[in-house]
Computed example of a mutant assay.
Amino acid sequence: MEILMSVVIGIIFAVAVYLMMSRNLIRVIIGTLVISHGVHLLLLTMAGLQTGAPPLLSLEESSYTDPLPQALILTAIVIAFGVTSLLAVMGYKTYKAHKTVDLEELKGAKDE
């Protein structure tokens, strides 16, 4: 299962890098969102399934998942949502000011 998830994470990273290399500002914003979700999956996959004593002392389980990476991923999801919202607002304001989302045209744009 970990090999399958590694392949899926690699595909997600490839798609995110492709989107971030685009000339369209909206695709760059979506690329940052996709790459953040790829990192979340990577962290969850790398945490893996632990063997040995469970985190709760009263249970006699043979395997368990560590709750710390899951808590970190939940925090990272909230932060990624905030960053994506900020980028979406900045992209909207850029479009309203310059009437384009093409990064090549924005590179030479002067403030009015």
Rank of each mutant, 00 (worst) to 15 (best):
M5C: 01
S6G: 12
S6L: 06
V7R: 04
V7C: 07
V7H: 03
V8D: 05
V8L: 14
G10T: 02
G10N: 08
I11H: 02
I11F: 14
I12T: 12
I12S: 01
I12E: 01
F13D: 11
F13P: 08
A14C: 07
V15P: 01
V15Q: 05
V15I: 03
A16S: 15
L19G: 13
M20Y: 07
M20P: 11
M21F: 07
M21T: 11
S22A: 04
R23W: 04
R23Q: 12
N24W: 06
N24V: 02
L25G: 07
L25I: 11
R27L: 12
R27N: 10
R27Q: 11
R27M: 11
I29A: 10
I29H: 08
I30D: 01
I30Q: 07
G31V: 00
G31F: 00
T32E: 03
T32G: 15
L33C: 08
L33W: 13
L33I: 01
L33T: 08
V34F: 04
V34K: 00
I35T: 06
I35G: 03
I35C: 03
I35W: 02
I35S: 11
S36C: 00
H37C: 13
H37G: 09
G38S: 10
G38E: 09
G38Q: 05
L41Y: 13
L42V: 11
L43E: 05
L44Q: 05
L44V: 08
T45K: 14
T45Y: 10
M46L: 15
M46D: 13
G48Y: 03
L49R: 10
Q50I: 02
A53T: 06
P54K: 15
P54Y: 15
P55V: 10
P55N: 09
L57F: 09
L57S: 10
S58W: 04
S58P: 00
S58Y: 06
L59H: 03
L59F: 12
E60R: 10
E60P: 00
E61R: 12
E61W: 14
S62T: 12
S63C: 11
S63F: 14
Y64G: 06
Y64N: 07
T65V: 13
T65E: 06
D66V: 09
